[in-house]
Design a protein around this nucleic acid. Structure first.
Lengths: 175, 175
DNA sequence: CTGGCTGCAAATTATTTGCATAATC
DNA sequence: GATTATGCAAATAATTTGCAGCCAG
């Protein structure tokens, strides 16, 4: 079977229309770019994809479109680092752990957070939507290679995120 | 006993000096402001405190100073929302949960995250420094009042963070 | 038609940086 | 007296917004 991307696209557009919004080629293109995009997509990255077929869709329109779909609950954005936000479809929610050394992004199933979720709710009355921000740390690879299951080629960041978390290594190190 | 703030201040300054840095009144003032500041302090908030006694310490100096101490491991910064970062001393590390409705910030002991920490390490080889980003959700108060321990006056945000997470309620609501 | 989109440019916000001068070690 | 810090202003970076025209419904 082909991906059900088309179905999801149409469903989102229908919802948009149902709420009084208008389906434009720009919006269709942005949503489509989001569906295609396997990696974590920043607004700018999406704009680039969109530009391939629709060169004059402005970046601000991409932001506005993402915002519109976010209002509809179709899209969510997450902060992986100090820089840009990344966007994905709401039905693909998961946690993110970003390696502060190499920038690799690891996707984590929500299930891992179940216990934390409960304890926060019970002990603090706080209900987390925990996916909004990424966790920061060191990935298996950067920890030294002897990590437990650390031989998979962990998801790599776009290469754009790489600098987000890395501050300058040391202050007065070089001669 | 009085707070050991003075001791901590001197210790940090000593470390700075030991690393070839210079102890200036600006740096002393910033660090001091950080020690005084009970609440979560943004660079701008710290600058304001500093300005009380040193009116011409520039905001950029505050940033540079915070950065310098961060290199020394004395200071850490955390992101509570979409906006500014907040700074605190490394020895006061804890997690933050921010209510996306009222902006309240709840401090959480690191212990809560122990299990998650282990599972991430075991299953994904990922070692979290999880405090870098806040968790987002709803505080007891905003959940409806019937929350478990939800009768304490949860820590309130500065009032500056309040807008950080709240996007516009709806798109086409107003005439 | 008509109000919701869009492109564009300009505004914001948070933070960083180049440079000449001032202060510390 | 040699560096390191500072103030200032100007540069970034990511995102937002005002406005006049365009387009879907």
């Amino acid at each position: 079977m082909t991906t059900d991307g088309d179905g999801r696209l149409e469903a989102a557009l229908d919802l948009l229309r149902a709420r009084g919004g208008r389906v434009t080629s720009a919006r269709r293109a942005v949503l489509s770019a989001l569906l295609e995009h396997q990696e974590h997509a920043s607004a700018e990255a999406l704009a680039e994809v969109v530009h391939a077929s629709h060169p004059d869709v402005h970046l601000s329109t991409v932001y506005r479109t993402l915002d519109a779909f976010e209002q509809l609950g179709v899209v969510t954005h997450v902060h992986l680092g100090h820089g840009r936000a990344i966007y994905h479809l709401t039905d693909e929610i998961h946690h993110h752990a970003v390696c502060e050394r190499c920038g690799a992004v690891v996707q984590l199933p929500l299930a891992l957070f179940a216990q934390l979720h409960h304890r926060l709710l019970d002990d603090f009355g706080f209900e987390v939507d925990a996916h909004h921000f990424a966790l920061v740390g060191r990935c298996a690879r950067c920890l030294g290679g002897t990590g437990a299951t650390g031989d998979r080629p962990l998801a790599t960041a776009d290469g754009e995120d790489r600098r987000s978390l890395a501050r300058r290594p040391a202050s007065g190190a070089s001669p």
